[in-house]
Simulated scan of single mutants.
Amino acid sequence: MTLTILRLSDPGLNVAYRDSGRGEPLILIHGVGMQSAAWGPQIAALSGSYRVIALDMPGHGGSDPLPQGSQLPDFVAWCRTVVQALDLGPVNLAGHSMGALIAAGFAASFPELTRRVALLNGVYCRDAASRRAVQTRAGQIQNGQIDLETPLARWFGDTPAEVAAKAQVAEWLGAVDAAGYATAYTAFANGDATYADQLPLISCPFLAMTGDGDPNSTPAMSAAMASLAQQGKAVTITGHRHMINLTAAPEVNAHLLTWLKQPATQKELQ
């Protein structure tokens, strides 16, 4: 599937995306260092019933970067601009890793544009040691010290499915624009608590899903986020780590289909 380029009139950026299927719109946002192609298994499984639009995040794939120093709210605002430019109306929104942070911020900030929201391998309120570690990595990336092997070792085991996914992810990481990667990773490092106190505002169907072997996007984080959302559900995928959309695609797709079939009702705060 080829990329389509959308030119945003404001702020004048190109956005690349993959568009497949018809029906209710489902927006997919990948994580730092990836690109829209990482959603291949979900596009194949879900585009028979939904219009699936997988975005290249700013500074990734074919999308222009946001200015250096942009933080998570800037990426959320970018997502809103894209949804409005595509004239989609209320959307279903699923994000992975940093994409999950964007999706949660979007759902909290723009409920009128959100039917349902799903967070895959999302982070939430890191402890002090984890926050220092990820901010240190962000500083190294800003200084041009890009270590690809450490995250790959953390994200994947040695099963045949994980080895195959690891090779593909390594290719995407190796192709990412260094400056765009640095800007996005810094926003990711600083954004784990940005919308934490707004999660109770999310009243649409909310799914938080991760792998039981993911040390940085833990099942406890997913459970905490789901407990705050008004219609939250947490799912843990056993035997998988950080890239569940690739390594556990059939199970992930089944949970996404169940989520998409929930009535897109908004509950009122008590």
Rank of each mutant, 00 (worst) to 15 (best):
A264F: 09
S109Q: 13
V252G: 02
S47Q: 08
N143H: 10
A153D: 13
A164K: 15
G95E: 08
L55T: 08
A44Y: 05
R115P: 06
F206D: 08
G89L: 02
G232I: 00
A196N: 03
S9Y: 00
V163K: 14
L173S: 08
G69F: 03
L113P: 06
Q145P: 06
L152R: 11
A38Y: 14
I244W: 10
G191R: 04
T236Y: 00
F75V: 00
L46G: 11
G33I: 06
S70H: 02
A167F: 04
Y195P: 06
Q266H: 15
I202W: 09
A94V: 12
L228S: 05
A248R: 03
G174P: 14
L3C: 11
K166Q: 15
G180I: 10
R241D: 10
A77Q: 05
D212P: 00
L3S: 14
Q68K: 01
I202K: 02
A138D: 04
Y185F: 15
G59I: 01
G21D: 09
T194A: 12
L199R: 00
V83W: 07
G48R: 13
A249Q: 00
G239L: 13
G122L: 04
L55S: 05
I53F: 12
L46I: 12
A182F: 13
G211E: 08
E268M: 06
D177V: 01
R18Y: 02
V52L: 04
Y17A: 09
A187D: 02
G31F: 11
P263A: 03
T159V: 14
V82Q: 01
N92M: 10
M221I: 03
